[in-house]
Computed example of a mutant assay.
Amino acid sequence: MRTRERRLTYREVGATAHELPDGYHHVQRSRVLGTGGALFERAADELRSWTLHERAGVRVSGGRVEVGDRVRLRIRVGPLPVVAHCEIVYVVDEPRRRGFAYGTLTGHPERGEELFCVEWCADDSVVLTITAFSRPALWWSRLGAVPARSVQRRISDRYLAAL
């Protein structure tokens, strides 16, 4: 199935910007990166250029960080390569807050959305936050739902350590 033929796999598009929907596993993790405007700008640039994902061991093919653009993410889970197709569903572009959220497309092992956001707080700290909701979408991801949560935690840890 070509990327353009894929469809979003969930109804709650944009929910990571507000209240996370019931019926999904929720993740909200943050890390203070440091302080200052220069760090904020660098972190925001690295986030929007997929550097965060690449440093975390996720290979990104195609797409920019613009609403409607699509990407293919590839990661190894043990010996197995996992491919996940996503679409950018919204972009955060505020003076002190930047980031984006992508949603899962057909064929993705999970169903849901993930937000990556860098914020330059009033106390001068720069914080990276990952917010997500998901549930298994494919038969094999449903069978491995408990181990999948562990993998999701490890990947989130790698994202948080990557900037």
Rank of each mutant, 00 (worst) to 15 (best):
84 A>D: 11
61 S>L: 14
37 G>L: 08
128 L>M: 09
102 Y>A: 01
10 Y>M: 05
144 G>S: 15
128 L>R: 04
48 R>E: 13
100 F>E: 00
118 V>K: 00
115 L>I: 03
66 E>Y: 09
28 Q>C: 13
75 I>A: 15
51 T>Y: 13
10 Y>A: 04
15 A>R: 11
91 V>P: 11
48 R>F: 09
107 G>C: 01
153 R>N: 12
147 P>V: 13
148 A>I: 14
57 G>Q: 06
53 H>W: 09
109 P>L: 00
148 A>M: 15
124 D>M: 01
17 A>I: 04
108 H>A: 00
11 R>G: 08
13 V>T: 12
156 S>T: 15
82 V>P: 05
18 H>I: 02
156 S>C: 12
156 S>D: 12
93 D>W: 08
119 E>R: 02
82 V>Y: 03
72 R>M: 13
154 R>M: 11
115 L>F: 05
31 R>H: 04
111 R>C: 06
23 G>C: 08
148 A>Y: 15
50 W>P: 05
19 E>K: 10
153 R>P: 03
111 R>L: 02
2 R>E: 13
112 G>E: 03
137 A>H: 10
137 A>D: 12
93 D>H: 14
15 A>F: 10
44 A>Y: 08
129 T>C: 05
34 G>Q: 02
73 L>T: 10
62 G>P: 03
50 W>C: 11
39 L>I: 03
64 R>G: 12
22 D>H: 13
24 Y>T: 07
143 L>N: 07
3 T>F: 01
44 A>K: 06
133 F>W: 08
48 R>Q: 14
61 S>P: 00
11 R>N: 07
69 D>Y: 13
62 G>Q: 03
89 V>F: 13
8 L>N: 09
68 G>K: 07
29 R>I: 06
24 Y>M: 06
85 H>K: 02
75 I>N: 12
138 L>H: 01
30 S>H: 07
31 R>A: 10
34 G>D: 03
27 V>R: 12
84 A>M: 12
101 A>D: 01
139 W>M: 04
96 R>T: 12
163 L>M: 08
38 A>S: 12
1 M>D: 06
153 R>V: 09
113 E>Y: 03
131 T>V: 15
6 R>D: 07
32 V>G: 02
92 V>P: 09
152 Q>S: 13
113 E>L: 02
111 R>H: 01
86 C>A: 15
159 Y>D: 01
41 E>W: 05
77 V>A: 14
124 D>T: 04
156 S>R: 01
16 T>N: 07
133 F>A: 05
48 R>W: 04
33 L>D: 04
21 P>S: 03
4 R>Q: 12
140 W>N: 05
70 R>H: 13
127 V>H: 02
111 R>D: 06
45 D>H: 15
36 G>D: 02
23 G>F: 09
105 L>F: 00
93 D>S: 15
116 F>L: 04
25 H>I: 09
151 V>K: 11
142 R>F: 10
68 G>A: 09
4 R>V: 10
102 Y>T: 00
138 L>V: 06
9 T>K: 04
127 V>K: 02
68 G>E: 10
150 S>P: 03
4 R>W: 08
86 C>L: 11
40 F>Q: 02
145 A>V: 15
113 E>M: 01
23 G>V: 08
50 W>L: 08
39 L>Q: 06
67 V>P: 13
